[in-house]
Design a protein around this nucleic acid. Structure first.
Lengths: 175, 175
DNA sequence: TATTAACATGTAAATAATTACATGTTTTTG
DNA sequence: CAAAAACATGTAATTATTTACATGTTAATA
């Protein structure tokens, strides 16, 4: 969907923490952020260019190897302003695009032969995701103290875990 | 995002229930389906044309008024086959794009002055949605018998209600 | 009966996102 | 030290989605 340029705000938010390269940003979507947003490098690099033109970010170069020069992007005052403004705006509740739910909608009979396998498959997938999230929680927030530092990340992870738990509960109910 | 043509399958699924016009399909996204997918008429009409070319659907004309001729679309055997195939495929767990979660991720301090208002605003929005969903449930499934007919729709609505309930619970926890 | 709202169907332009194409560097490991 | 994996950065083509443009009909209502 043509979203409201939320990716731009994610990039601003990540750069607001610290300077990052395009590759760093791309990787962020494989781990933390990936839990609730996706983006490819082919979307990120052009957007960084555009955002730099709009003076939301700048970059400085880093000699990373004998031949490799990396661009590390930094947020500008303009960028910070836009980011803070976004944070304060009301958030739109996006519809979660869940393909399983979509399919379920079309299965009207409680006794459809498709149902049991579909539910089991989904249960397994969700259980795997839940395990992965719990492991993440263990790795990233081993002590109470660590939760203080990155409360945002902690809350989001906690939410994801709860979401998967609730999803599994619901799957048990419909079977 | 460039999804995997899920809209096509939604249309096939809806036409598999009964013949519908482009307008009927559009309206479906304002009510039931709208709970977990969005689409505009400007996306639907061209797609119907494309799907007809691909012989997944056909149409017949209905004289609806003295001047108004409506096209009502019907699923073809090809369309049914493709739809059934899709139903049987494993479902991908799409990431729910939740702007509030996104913002929360970037608020690291538990004592941020932004938090209380953000949470309250979100709580209110979710509560409103929950009320709306509960009303829908009452309207569409007033008796046990009605749940038997459209079990898919019932399950999905039940899921949406549970999701909002859980979301509210989580919002209470993070405040 | 004039106005408005809802019905009804399209196209165009712009933006967002995925997949594929393309290339080169650095680190790890067998 | 050769190969593979991971690092690193882009562009191109295609598809998906939204917003805006455009037009006409029918039903409800004031």
């Amino acid at each position: 969907m043509a979203q409201k340029n939320r990716l731009q705000f994610i990039i601003l938010g990540l750069l607001n923490i610290e300077s990052k390269t395009g590759y760093d940003l791309t990787k962020a979507f494989d781990s933390d952020i990936g839990e609730f947003w996706t983006a490819n490098h082919s979307q990120i690099y052009p957007l960084l260019k555009k955002m730099e033109q709009e003076q939301l970010i700048t970059h400085h170069e880093i000699q990373a190897g004998p031949k490799l020069v990396k661009k590390s992007y930094d947020i500008t005052p303009n960028g910070k302003e836009l980011f803070e403004k976004w944070l304060k705006e009301p958030s739109e509740a996006d519809n979660s695009h869940d393909e399983f739910i979509l399919k379920l909608y079309f299965i009207d009979s409680k006794t459809s032969p498709l149902l049991p396998e579909m539910i089991n498959e989904q249960k397994q997938a969700r259980q795997e995701k839940l395990n992965h999230l719990k492991q993440q929680m263990k790795d990233k927030f081993p002590t109470e103290k660590t939760k203080q530092n990155q409360n945002g990340h902690y809350n989001v992870l906690k939410h994801a875990i709860q979401r998967e738990n609730d999803y599994l509960k619901w799957l048990d109910e419909i079977k």
